[in-house]
Design a protein around this nucleic acid. Sequence first.
DNA 1: TATCTTTGAATTAACGATAATTAAACGAGA
DNA 2: TCTCGTTTAATTATCGTTAATTCAAAGATA
Lengths: 208, 208
Amino acid sequence: MSRRGSLVVTEVRRRIMLNELAPGAVLTELGLAAELACSQAAMREALLRLEGEGLVRRAGHQGTTVTDLDAETAAEILDLRRRIELRGARRAARRAMAGDLARLVGLQVAMDRAASAGDVWGLIEQDIAFHLELFQIGGLDALTPILARCILHTQRFKLWAPWHHRPLVETAARHRVLIEQLRAGDAAGLSRELALHLDTMVDQASAA
Amino acid sequence: MSRRGSLVVTEVRRRIMLNELAPGAVLTELGLAAELACSQAAMREALLRLEGEGLVRRAGHQGTTVTDLDAETAAEILDLRRRIELRGARRAARRAMAGDLARLVGLQVAMDRAASAGDVWGLIEQDIAFHLELFQIGGLDALTPILARCILHTQRFKLWAPWHHRPLVETAARHRVLIEQLRAGDAAGLSRELALHLDTMVDQASAA
DNA sequence: TATCTTTGAATTAACGATAATTAAACGAGA
DNA sequence: TCTCGTTTAATTATCGTTAATTCAAAGATA
């Protein structure tokens, strides 16, 4: 699993998400490759992937730039995310098996660990994995990559906005109720709680 | 514009969309590269892009396979497309400038040309460009790639379903009314017509 | 006969070097 | 002083090759 390319794309993604590579920054394949000690081809593949995720924009022969973000766009994407995720959750409540619950619980404890360790990025990664795992139970596989993109961008905006100081442990704990609703097979309850979950995220961002 | 890589990705995309490369087919980088007379690296980049579009699935060291498609998934994606595109259209009606209309008219005549020439694929390409152009007037830039993906997949399903025999010229002509509503700045009218436009597409597919 | 190991083919991943393309800096002429 | 053409530097795109990984089938052993 020591796949170099995988590690490279993960690292560049992390730097963009954490704003270490700020919007508008110009990246050159050779330059970043030297910094991360990989070949140009590996970095090329990484940037290609990140372009597919909407994190960078590759423009001709004049370098690759980190994409901008703004509040209105973030709101639009969050709205789309809400719709997709709620629809998936309603289906998930009717289909969840024991194994699904076990996987979610596993991600939950991983989030708790990351939160108490103060590992912001680790918490984000597990949070994304949690929501995607929950969605995939619903079986709408073709929408998963779209949802993944929406989640990525909402998280990016949340990190970028200077006012994201909810305690980590609380953030992690807020997923427990979702598991409970899912275990109960309560579609209405799950979608209600999930909507609340997403709303608090936006409240947090718009409460300036 | 004689960019080799661009041409390669376009060609592979065309073959998948036209079902010349059927769902489940396994593609090897070297094999396809030899067939299209390009290097492995160029084909690698092409497949990477197509994976980002959801047309192929790259799985470890066991080849790249063309993704499956089914009616339920297509319906879900079309639903998402409708939502995104209608929202964009409502905004577009309030923002359209003369230049925007000119571009749309240009695409319209290109569709007419392709239709009367019996060029199915050309018509599809122009149709996709038309809808994306219309959406971009709305200014929701961050959603454009998501919409592009949805449009691509709805078109793919339409082509894949064996019952898509609406006359080409009629398909092309059906975009004129959209331009008219946009020119009139009638947001309600445009979204109504666009919804109808999308509904006929699904009726066409579900009328088995 | 069943299971484990080994060997082989096939494929992706990575690298280094070269070519092609673009954008900007520069200078000459009007 | 401004504009146009040329040159130059930087960057991406492509190529050919090599290395590492995986899957599957053949063979050996209990």
